[in-house]
Structures are given as structure tokens and as C-alpha cells.
């Protein structure tokens, strides 16, 4: 991955990793691939990855991984520059794919939020909304999760480097819970679970710990959120505010979850 290295053989693909508004956990997932990191680094030129290296190669980049949401005027411009330099642009994580937890501000006026945190609101340059990358530029593939799953990340990198479509499942968590033989936390323990409307990817971690899914991987393609909301309200007796907050979490600004939460406003 060294810059300026002369290799015989074909040119290695250039991989870039970009950060916008986020916690860095998704790009950390790449460094958390301890067993595979050095192999990945041998197969690509890591051309831009601030979390890992000072070295930089100029664009264009074969694959850009984009973490984080767009939340400042500066970032709204910067993402276009990234897009122009990238053959394939892959968004990684809930911030990049649905605006992230910081998109909770989208449901409120921003000014009181700024006043609540900062003594000098005039120093803060922030957009009214935190929005996903696809609201600004074309996205070639999106990888969900808060954080992403590192196995899925390796699959995406592997697939794109080999010119095939990534094999990422998009069905609901409930199916995987049944496959894994998890006891249903909703039926058995009356917990408010987003599993029926949430895409798989984490490996049903929460029901595995006897807790309800809180939606890290965002809505499935055709989630029946209305039915789930009725179940939570009528059968489990949760109030409107509880139902609203359940949908309004780490992927709360994803269309299906946003619309359902607004019904319970």
C-alpha cells in the first residue's frame, strides 16, 4: 500500500475511506478485521484512509467507502468532490445510509438544540438536517448497520474488487431469529422489538442477549410498520411516545421508520 511503490503486474485497485458526521465506528470495523487486514492491504492500494495512514494517493479511486452523514454546508460540497473522484461509491453504516442518530435533530428546530449544547451558537455552522449520502449523490451500494458488520464489509470489498454484486441479505431479522432458534423476545417476554421490520446483518445479536432489536440495520424493503405499531400499542400496551421513540432511533430518519414515528407524534 506504500505510495509510489512500483509493482510489476497489474495495477492494484485504489481504495479510499471518507468520513463525514459519524462516530468512526464503521471505518474502525475495517481495522477490526485483524485477521484479514494485511491481506486486504496487499490486494488494494489504500489511497486515502485518514484513520489508518498519512499517505495519500490522488484520485480517481476505484472504490470509495463513505462513512457518516451530511450535516454541514462544507460537507454538502465535499461529498460531490468525493463522488467525482470515485468509480464506485459505497456508503457504510447508519449515518451514511439514513442520517444516523444525529438525524434525531431533523424532527425538531435546530436552534434550541444548538443553544442546549453550545454557549456561542454563532460559532456553529450546521445544516438544519442531518441527511444520508444518497440524498446528495448517486450511491452504488449501501451497507447498513450501526455499526456495519465486518464480515459484510469484507464481502462487499471482495465482491467489488472481483466485479460481482455483493451477496448481502435483505430479509427481516425475524427470519434469522427463527433459523437460529432464538426465543422470541416479543412473544415470550413482551419486549417491544423492531426485529419484524428490521433488515438482517448483525446476526440477531440483541435477541441472542434476551433483549429486543433496536433497529441498527434499518428497515427491510417492505416493512409492515403499521402492523408492528398496532401490536406494540394494542397488544403490549405501549404508549404513543414509546412507539414513536422506538422507531426514532439509530435509523430513525430512514423513510419507513420516519413515517411511522410521525404517525405517533
Amino acid at each position: 500500500m506504500a505510495k509510489g511503490k512500483t509493482n510489476s503486474g497489474p495495477r492494484k485497485p485504489k481504495l479510499a475511506v471518507w468520513k463525514f458526521s459519524s462516530c468512526d465506528g464503521c471505518q474502525l470495523s475495517l481495522l477490526d478485521c485483524e485477521d484479514e487486514l494485511l491481506t486486504v492491504a496487499d490486494s488494494v492500494d489504500i489511497a486515502y484512509f485518514l484513520e489508518a495512514t498519512r499517505a495519500e494517493l490522488p484520485g480517481p479511486y476505484d472504490v470509495s467507502l463513505v462513512e457518516g452523514s451530511i450535516s454541514t454546508p462544507h460537507d454538502a460540497e465535499r461529498i460531490h468532490k468525493v463522488r467525482r473522484q470515485s468509480k464506485l461509491l459505497v456508503t457504510i453504516g447508519a449515518c451514511a445510509t439514513s442520517g444516523g442518530i444525529q438525524a434525531l435533530r431533523n424532527f425538531k428546530d435546530l436552534d434550541p438544540f444548538i443553544n442546549a449544547v453550545y454557549a456561542h451558537p454563532e460559532y456553529i455552522d450546521s445544516l438544519a438536517k442531518s441527511t444520508p449520502i444518497q440524498d446528495h449523490v448517486k450511491v452504488d451500494f449501501e451497507l447498513r448497520g450501526c455499526p456495519i458488520d465486518k464480515g459484510q464489509l469484507l464481502e462487499v470489498i471482495n465482491a467489488l474488487l472481483n466485479g460481482r454484486k455483493p451477496n448481502i441479505a435483505t430479509h427481516g431479522q425475524c427470519i434469522d431469529c427463527k433459523r437460529q432458534g432464538n426465543v422470541c423476545v416479543m412473544v415470550a417476554h413482551g419486549q417491544p422489538c423492531l426485529g419484524p421490520v428490521t433488515q438482517v446483518g448483525c446476526g440477531t445479536l440483541c435477541p441472542g442477549c434476551q433483549r429486543a432489536c433496536y433497529g441498527c440495520f434499518g428497515p427491510t424493503e417492505t416493512p409492515n410498520t403499521a402492523s408492528l405499531a398496532r401490536w406494540l400499542g394494542d397488544r403490549q400496551g405501549h404508549g404513543k411516545r414509546e412507539v414513536k421513540h422506538l422507531f426514532r432511533g439509530f435509523t430513525g430518519y430512514a423513510d419507513a421508520f420516519r413515517k411511522e414515528s410521525e404517525i405517533h407524534e
Partner: peptide
Amino acid sequence: FEPPRFFEAFLQGRRYME
């Protein structure tokens, strides 16, 4: 330059368990 994320603001109104 970290974009402000307003955690302390949007925690208001949420349950302590969250």
C-alpha cells in the same frame, strides 16, 4: 471541525434506559 451532533440536546425526553 467535527460537525456538531447535539447528543445532549436529543437525549432530552428519552427514557433513562436509552
